[in-house]
């Protein structure tokens, strides 16, 4: 284990947004977030409650991560699976601590668009799949971990979403207090270029990957890039995190989220790097 790749580092960074003892959920069609939850549960957050998106299985130990979110492999080892309404009720009343969300577009307030690009009144220019449960859940789940694996495209992090599916910290209708939303909104946003936090409800670059510059990141970010005064490089994965990840995602499902060129980004692993757990 002398090297690791960008997709692995990315998943580990997502995993680290999970705090111990949290109840965490991922939406379907989100392999990176899905793998990240299992990595967290096998390293630094062993007491978390992991709820599989689309299966609603609680703390399963899947033999592998399949390319679809509601395959029976994802409930293997789970002593219990919630019913659909059982999960959504819990999330809406505020019993879920964290959810992972992404979007074809994400703005600087953390609003996400998973519905479609272009004007929606005359037919979308590009119709995306849709938001699943996000438009309700983003309101009430305590923290949101956002991610984008297509930051470099220049089309993902935008000044304003063409369509707001899931509420971030503020949108034209108001902020979360105005709208009576009980959840805290986006807390982190991980991209293949860096990691953002949301002080004051606005995205700020706190970490960058060592092989990209702030200028490169600024050039592909649609909203005005705020940068932390103590901008750092992202902390490398530990041996424990890498082996957990490779064991969980033996089919490499996570890699499907990235452009081919990103998967060529390979980094040297320092075996002395401690365990994050």
């Amino acid at each position: 284990m002398t090297q690791f790749s960008l997709d692995e580092w990315f998943v580990v960074l997502l995993a680290r947004t999970i705090r111990p003892a949290e109840t965490v959920f991922h939406g379907f069609g989100s392999p990176c977030a899905q793998v990240a939850m299992h990595v967290a549960r096998r390293t630094h957050a062993r007491d978390m409650t992991l709820i599989e998106g689309a299966m609603y299985a609680v703390n399963p130990d899947p033999p592998f991560i399949p390319p679809t979110s509601n395959d029976a492999s994802l409930k293997r080892g789970a002593p219990y699976s919630m019913r659909f309404e059982e999960f959504f009720d819990a999330a809406i009343r505020g019993d879920v601590d964290r959810m992972f969300l992404s979007g074809g577009q994400i703005d600087g307030h953390g609003n996400t668009n998973v519905t479609g690009m272009g004007p929606s009144d005359t037919g979308f220019k590009v119709k995306l799949g849709g938001g699943g449960g996000g438009c309700n859940l983003a309101a009430t789940i305590r923290h949101l971990s956002l991610w984008s694996s297509r930051h470099r495209s220049g089309r993902a992090l935008v000044e304003a979403c063409d369509f707001i599916t899931d509420m971030g910290h503020r949108n034209p209708a108001g902020d979360r207090v105005d709208l009576g939303y009980t959840g805290g909104g986006p807390q982190w946003m991980v991209t293949e270029l860096g990691v953002f936090s949301f002080p004051g409800g606005q995205a700020r670059l706190d970490f960058r990957f060592p092989d990209v510059s702030v200028e490169e990141i600024r050039a592909v970010t649609g909203f005005e890039l705020r940068v932390a005064g103590d901008l750092r490089t992202v902390v490398p994965p530990s041996s424990a995190e890498l082996s957990a990840l490779r064991a969980v995602d033996s089919l490499g499902i996570r890699r499907g989220e990235f452009a081919a060129a990103e998967l060529d980004r390979v980094f040297d692993h320092d075996p002395a790097m401690g365990c994050a757990c």
Binding site: I92, T115, S120, D121, G131, C135, N136, L137, A138, A139, T140, F163, I164, T165, D166, M167, N171, P172, A173, G174, L179, G180, Y181, T182
Partner: peptide, 13 residues
């Protein structure tokens, strides 16, 4: 009644 949806463009649909 449902919580959420307010402030989302889903309302427009």
């Amino acid at each position: 009644p449902v919580r959420g949806v307010r402030g989302s463009d889903i309302l427009r649909l």
